[in-house]
Every structure is written in structure tokens, then in C-alpha cells.
Design a protein around this nucleic acid. Structure first.
Lengths: 203, 203
DNA sequence: GCATATTTTAACCAAATGGTTAATAAAGGT
DNA sequence: ACCTTTATTAACCATTTGGTTAAAATATGC
């Protein structure tokens, strides 16, 4: 049999697990489905990753990383506020466009997994938004933006970026959009989101 | 045995099913857990509701109804635009405050259940936003608001209302908020959301 | 009070599922 | 070539799970 030697078994398993877990979630995913999707024997899953939970942990951790790592790095960078908002919206929209089903997966599991599991994964590396907070305070004093709490600003930016993808079937239905129309609206929003946010705080 | 006669068995089942399904989702929910939560024998679930899927259908339908029915009725009412935005944000925030775990449940299942299931539940009753669209066009022509697509405006309003609850564990973690702090921020947002939206479109 | 219909339960069942095992195949080292 | 280690597989196992059933309890109509 012509086995593609370049993708190792472990990589095939990870790719398959990602597909299945993100589509079905921890509870809905079946080890047999992951094995089939990877084209290997089910026992290999346990040979390489010990248990379903351990395999899930790897996939979840990677997904959470992809989803959250950029938030902090951009929002705490040294860019001017409006540029920062634009960069965040654009880059973040891009990440999510490329992984449209990732947010729902991660959010869902963060709400369902026990606290101990999350603690173990996220550990103590508490992000900090000091830079952003100072920056916003300064702009408020300068009078360039209205008084706004940094927490709510961040919540708004993230909400506008992520939620449309999480609620895709809802919006498609209530607004009667086919997949193509929905896609092009999401494309518009890549630049629009930042302008919405800026307009809402600009004085 | 002193059976509380006022709550019928069927009602007890529905209440328990709601609790378990919303907490665990279709895949994670166990019929035995629902029976235990209702304090009855598992066979009664099938006696009253035939199958897990049928029971789930009832709970999901009720949840989706609660979540979506008000969107249309408010957005298509005859109120002036800004009042409409305020009413929507306030009322919708209230609904979700009172059912904080409902959105994730509904969104999750809408993404996971087969198209046929959703078609069967939502049927043909296609909501229409004609009123709102005309209203927005009029305000744009009058020059009271910037040019904005109604679709994106509605997406923004709903995103800001719902997403913070869906992503509660995320926001609590990245912003280091305890449950109380988070709750008080959500309270602020009940009125803030509308002002954000209005500020973003006002000329 | 009694026959009938409805409700409830304990015990049971078959299928599915995560996980294991023992044997086989392939790779690596010498 | 030969031995050892690593990788892979088919068959198997125990438990869980949605669902059924037959009998018991309760309510209903007369």
C-alpha cells in the first residue's frame, strides 16, 4: 500500500482529532470516527495519546492558544489606539475566517469542562491589559475619545469579531442569506468592525 | 408518599430536561440524569416523550423561541430608530440575563443538528425586517445617521447583547473578574449596549 | 366495590463506546 | 542475518446508554 510517508501517524491522528472534536465536541466525538478519519486502527489512538481525554486536551489547548494568544499581544502593543483597534479587528477577523468553527468549540468546552481541567490548561499565565488601560485613560484625558471602560471596549471588539461566526446559522436564517452572501458580509466586516468601534468612542 | 400534586409528572420531566440539556447539550445529556433530576423512573421519559430526540426537540424549540421571538417583534415595531435600539438592547439583555446559559445551548445545537432537524423546527416562518430596513434608509437620507447596512446593524446589536454571556468564562479569565464583578459589568451593559450602537451610527 | 384504563416501577436488553491485549509486522542496530 | 525495539492490527472486554417490557400500583368510570 502506498503510504504517504511524510505525514507521520501522530500527525494524522492530530489532524483527524481536530476535525472530529471541533465538529462534534468532546461528548459527541467518537474515538472510532477519529481513527477512521485518520485511516488507522483505533488502538493507535491510545498508543499515541493514552486516552480520549488526553487527546482532547491537546486539541483544545492548541485551539484555545490560536484563539486567545493574539488578543493580548496586539492589545498590549505600543501602537496608537485607533491603529491598534484596526489591527486587532483585521487580524482577529482573519484568524477566525480561517477557523470559523473553532470559536464555538472552544467556548462550548470552556463552559462545559470542569474548572480543574481549565485551570490545568490555562494555568497561572494571567494576561494583563495595563498598557491598553493606560492608553485609553490618556486618550480620554486628551479628549480624543469619550469616557469608556477598557473592559467594555475589549468585550465589544471581541464580541463583534467572533459572534457572527458562532451564530452563523442564526443569522443566515433570520436574514435569509445563502452561504455566499454570508461569506461576503463577513468579509466586509473585517474592516467595518474597527470603524464601528472607533465611531462609537470617538469624540 | 407526599407527592406534590401541583406539578404533574410531565412538567417535572420538562423542567429536568431543560436543566440537563442546557447544561450538557444533546450529546452530553443522559436520560438517567434527567430522570434522577425529575425524581422519577427513566421509563417515564419514554412513556411521555417517546425518545431522547423527541424530548430534546421540545426543549430546543422552547429555547429557540425564547431567544429569537423578540428580535423580530421589536425590530419591526413602529418605534423611532434610536428608541427601538434602546428597547431592543434593554429587553434582550434582560432575557439573556435571566437565561444566561440558553444562548450557548441553542447556538451549539444549531451548528450541530442536521439541517433537516432545523428545517423541521423553524419551518417556513421566515422573519422579515422590511420595516427596519425602510426606517434605516429614511434616517440615512434625512442625514441623522451614517450610511449603514441594516444587516450589519442587526448583527452588531445581537452580537453585543449575547456574546458576553456565551464567552463568560473567557472574559472572566482574561480580565481576571470574579462572578460578582462580571455580573455587575453585564448589568452596566444593559443600557450601555444601545448607546454604543447609537454612537457608532449617529452623525 | 369492581372492571377498565392510566401511570409508575424494577428488571432487562441490544447496541455503542472507550479502552485493552496478544499477536504480527516493520524498523533499527549490530 | 539476527535480535530488539517500535508500530500496527484484529479481536476482545467491561461499562454505559437509550430503550423495552411485564408486572404492580394508582386513578377513573360506573
Amino acid at each position: 500500500m502506498p503510504r504517504t510517508k511524510n505525514t507521520s501517524t501522530e500527525e494524522k491522528i492530530l489532524a483527524a482529532a481536530k476535525t472530529i472534536f471541533i465538529e462534534k465536541g468532546m461528548d459527541g466525538a467518537r474515538m472510532q470516527d477519529i481513527a477512521d478519519n485518520a485511516g488507522i486502527n483505533k488502538a493507535l489512538l491510545h498508543y499515541y495519546f493514552k486516552s480520549k481525554e488526553k487527546l482532547f486536551e491537546v486539541i483544545f489547548k492548541e485551539g484555545a492558544e490560536k484563539l486567545f494568544s493574539k488578543i493580548n499581544s496586539i492589545l498590549n502593543s505600543d501602537l496608537p489606539l485607533f491603529e491598534k483597534i484596526r489591527l486587532f479587528s483585521n487580524e482577529y477577523a482573519e484568524i477566525i475566517s480561517q477557523n470559523p468553527y473553532l470559536p464555538l468549540f472552544v467556548l462550548n468546552e470552556m463552559n462545559k469542562q470542569p474548572h480543574s481541567f481549565l485551570e490545568n490548561i490555562f494555568g497561572k499565565n494571567q494576561p494583563t491589559f495595563e498598557n491598553l488601560v493606560k492608553q485609553i485613560d490618556k486618550e480620554i484625558k486628551k479628549g480624543t475619545i469619550k469616557p469608556v471602560s477598557p473592559v467594555n471596549l475589549v468585550i465589544n471588539m471581541i464580541s463583534l469579531s467572533i459572534f457572527p461566526f458562532v451564530a452563523k446559522p442564526v443569522f443566515q436564517r433570520i436574514m435569509n442569506l445563502d452561504a455566499l452572501q454570508f461569506g461576503s458580509i463577513m468579509d466586509q466586516r473585517k474592516t467595518m468592525n474597527a470603524e464601528f468601534i472607533i465611531a462609537s468612542i470617538k469624540k
